[in-house]
């Protein structure tokens, strides 16, 4: 594979909670246009690492670079405008607003008309069009006008993904997008993520527990363990890595079976 550009990079990134180093001296480079999985046991620091990338947490030490620019400590609301979208392990939506309004708000954020307080929102045509496309894409057209809170969990996960897709970011940070989904719904969502990534040449960083999924869809995999990077490589390299096998994959996944 030819060397590609780095979209996001961390240098010696650490986050301490009291005495606990949830993320411990992590330096990582993610190539543009790849699907990069981050795996690791519960409590490995994956979500905390995401929070550092997306600006939800400030690192104790270290830096984050996006397209070569230092973005450490930038306010959260700037992230999407730079092209970084982020979904959550625990569904984070607007439960009392309709599916349509959830997605619409996500699309509207990319407009520069947000302070026209006498304008009729329904007249923002590009926003409405974009909203309709995204709702269709995540397969929620029939539920568009019902409040998000009454959606079944699986559909709420789709909505969460829709919220990320609406502003059309270049880098998608997806924290266990299939968490809590019925097994038969998982492939559909994963396919959708792959499609988005490949068709638009986007970069996806995916935290996912389902090893079959990870091994199948990832270009590269980073294994985290106790806040540190344990290994990094292609799916085949990771599967063959003895250290990873013993520390983590052993009981969960075996390429040879």
């Amino acid at each position: 594979m030819t060397a590609r550009e780095t979209i996001i990079e961390t240098q010696n990134l650490s986050k301490h909670f009291g005495g606990l180093a949830a993320v411990d001296d992590v330096s990582i480079k993610i190539e543009t246009g790849t699907l990069h999985a981050i795996i690791g046991p519960n409590g490995a620091g994956k979500t905390t690492f995401f929070n550092l990338l997306s600006g939800n947490l400030k690192p104790t030490t270290g830096k984050v670079f996006y397209k070569g620019q230092d973005i450490t400590g930038k306010p959260i609301y700037r992230m999407i405008h730079m092209g970084i979208g982020r979904s959550f392990q625990i569904t984070n939506i607007f439960p009392n607003l309709t599916v349509h309004e959830n997605i619409r708000l996500a699309s509207q954020a990319m407009e520069d008309k947000n302070f026209r307080f006498l304008m009729d929102t329904t007249k923002m045509q590009t926003v409405e069009e974009r909203t309709a496309i995204v709702i269709e894409k995540v397969g929620l057209s029939r539920q568009a006008d019902i409040p998000a809170r009454v959606l079944p969990h699986g559909d709420q996960r789709k909505l969460e993904l829709g919220i990320i897709l609406a502003p059309d970011p270049e880098l998608l940070l997806l924290d266990e997008p299939t968490a809590g989904m019925a097994t038969d719904q998982v492939p559909e969502l994963i396919t959708l993520i792959q499609e988005v990534q490949q068709s638009d040449d986007k970069t996806v960083i995916l935290v996912e527990h389902n090893m079959n999924v990870v091994m199948k869809v990832s270009d590269r995999i980073t294994v985290m363990h106790q806040g540190k990077i344990l290994a990094e490589g292609t799916p085949a390299e990771i599967a063959a890595n003895h250290e990873v096998q013993t520390a983590y994959l052993g009981g969960l996944y075996d390429l040879n079976t």
Binding site: Y77, N92, L97, N114, F117
Partner: peptide
């Protein structure tokens, strides 16, 4: 009913999410 007002409603519903929307 304006873009500004819709964001105010979003803030009421889930301010952190509204921030992350940008």
């Amino acid at each position: 009913a304006s873009p500004t007002g819709r964001v105010c409603v979003a803030i009421r519903e889930n301010e952190d999410r509204a921030k992350m929307l940008g």
